[in-house]
């Protein structure tokens, strides 16, 4: 067992929210990534065991989605959008500035392990504040070289984001969150109440 008791409790909690444990794979992988910072194969196997699934079923999901890390990233993670809307407002120059400041190309980690950064063609939904980036999942918009420098300095002084996430959650779901088996029949309600 490599996962913390809290993460295992979170996975058990998640499992009870869905009619089928398979649906809990994605939230469980998030829980693992937020504890460890990435998804080691042994942790994926542990998720599979907790959910009563084969390890390959969990790995199949982990490898499909781009936000699950299959290798350990740096302490902080930066995503720079270079899709059309951001590009129109200078995203290439933003990415070039970050590359120059961090001294490593997109998709790599700084020598001190502080930052992993990548430019992504996936639109991050910050087009109104373009050019933009996400740092440890948080939106940073209207970027200028000065703002980027200030953000990098601020973030470097912070602890790794994944270590203090998620906020401690109650492992016992309220009674109403336990779904019925998917085969249950019959209308849930007779209509409007008086």
């Amino acid at each position: 067992m490599m996962l913390a008791a809290r993460t295992r409790a979170e996975i058990e909690h998640t499992r009870r929210r869905y009619p089928h444990p398979r649906s809990a794979i994605m939230p469980s992988l998030w829980a693992v990534q937020h504890e460890l910072g990435w998804l080691p194969p042994e942790a994926m196997a542990e998720v599979a065991e907790l959910l009563g699934l084969a390890p390959s079923e969990v790995q199949a999901v982990a490898t499909f989605y781009s936000m699950y890390f299959k290798r350990p990233p740096g302490r902080h993670h930066i995503l720079v959008c270079v899709n059309a809307a951001c590009a129109l407002r200078g995203a290439d120059e933003t990415a070039a500035h970050i590359e120059q400041r961090l001294g490593c190309p997109s998709g790599t980690t700084t020598a001190d392990g502080m930052f992993t950064w990548e430019s992504t063609i996936e639109c991050l939904g910050g087009c109104g504040g373009a050019p933009m980036m996400q740092v440890d999942h948080h939106f940073e918009e209207h970027l200028t070289p000065e703002r980027i420098d200030a953000i990098l300095a601020r973030v470097a002084a912070q602890p790794a984001d994944h270590r203090d996430w998620p906020p401690a959650r109650v492992p016992n779901p309220p009674a109403s969150t336990t779904p019925p088996p998917p085969t249950a029949e019959g209308p849930p309600s007779a209509g409007a109440a008086g």
Binding site: R89, G90, D92, E93, T94, A96, H97, A130, P131, H142, L143, T144, P145, E146, R147, I148
Partner: peptide, 9 residues
């Protein structure tokens, strides 16, 4: 000429 970095405000 390409836009300077962070040309948007």
């Amino acid at each position: 000429r390409p836009l300077p970095a962070g040309a948007a405000r």
